[in-house]
Design a protein around this nucleic acid. Structure first.
Lengths: 190, 190
DNA sequence: CTGTTTTCTTAATCTTGATTCATTTTTTGA
DNA sequence: TCAAAAAATGAATCAAGATTAAGAAAACAG
């Protein structure tokens, strides 16, 4: 549903019907089944993704050959490998659907064209990026000021519904510890 | 020097002389002595800061009553407590000059006015925020995929000149470990 | 200069969470 | 519907880095 995106944009800037039509022409709306990859390592990342429904994860394989999740995106969040997108170099990341999802994608090129036609979108994305940066900073702050166990409890108190949606091992990966350790602290709680 | 800022902006968008004059009227350029605070906890953060010369750090006091540095800003970087800036709530952070510095500051309100007069600046700040977000994500990736010792060596190979500029204990804080541990790995190296 | 504060180093002990390996439970798909 | 794969749990051992407590070396101010 394109309206999920345009409604989100309207929270920050005004959009005319003509603007919405230009957005419609620039983006691609698609259904993505659980486990499908939108990006894989060694591919060039060309798109940014808006989650209209469902959930995506961004991860890479670390030195110990484990999946390391660095970002989730749920409804109304954007996700991309911005580093790959800007550099044009082959990506190191996977972007994968965690649930059956509805994704709105737009290529870097189409987005640049759209910025020329609807310059106020620069403002929307400035705000989106600023919020993303602020959230990333908060996360770094928690990593450095809470123990793993505290971070788990903090996360589960903030996002109890999200915890129901994803496998535990993915949350352990996102929080930076092992599934075994997660089992241990969960057992402790009861 | 205002030109440090306008030159930086010109790397991303075009600026007319009139635009530059509008920027000049909106910002404040000031010299800040080492150890001076630009923001302290329980104060409302109203400004964002551009480092024209020198170095700033952003930190908070964690539960163990230690300083925890979450960001540095050197020449051509912006720094603020964006969370406090957007929420209008009292800050939890210190922003302090690490060296005698020249800082260009602009208040949130003045910046909003400036966006109305020079809308292309939204683009500049969109790009700045996107880069900041990408850097923060990279940092999270390193935190989760490298040991503390590896992260120290990685950082010192990437930014050898910066290491000379700041006390070791600040770098230890930024990297998330103790000065004692840092001494240990430095001693190991020789 | 010279006393004081700040920064850095060393070493012993302690803790958190990783690793390894085995088992159980849940989910999935043919 | 049931076999196979995926996910979660449990326990024993191990390691990276914290903590504590000195003391040494630099930097700084009067």
């Amino acid at each position: 549903m394109l309206s999920n995106l345009t409604d989100h944009i309207k929270k920050f800037i005004e959009l005319s019907d003509a603007d919405i039509e230009l957005i419609r022409l620039a983006v691609t709306v698609k259904s993505v089944k659980k486990k499908v990859f939108l990006l894989e390592p060694n591919h060039i990342c060309k798109d940014i993704y808006f989650v209209s429904k469902g959930c995506l994860r961004l991860y890479f394989i670390n030195k110990k050959l484990n999946e390391q999740i660095t970002q989730f995106a749920i409804e109304n969040w954007w996700l991309s490998d911005y580093f790959g997108l800007e550099s044009g170099k082959p990506s190191n990341y996977y972007i994968q659907a965690v649930e059956n999802s509805e994704i709105i994608s737009i290529s870097k090129n189409k987005l640049e064209e759209l910025f020329e036609k609807v310059p106020r979108l620069e403002r929307y994305f400035r705000i989106v990026q600023q919020r993303a940066f602020t959230a990333a900073q908060k996360r770094i702050e928690y990593i450095y000021s809470l123990s793993d166990e505290e971070r788990y409890r903090h996360f589960s108190s903030l996002f109890p519904e999200f915890m129901q949606r994803i496998p535990q091992y993915m949350l352990a990966s996102y929080l930076g510890f092992t599934p075994q350790f997660m089992s241990k602290i969960r057992a402790k709680k009861i």
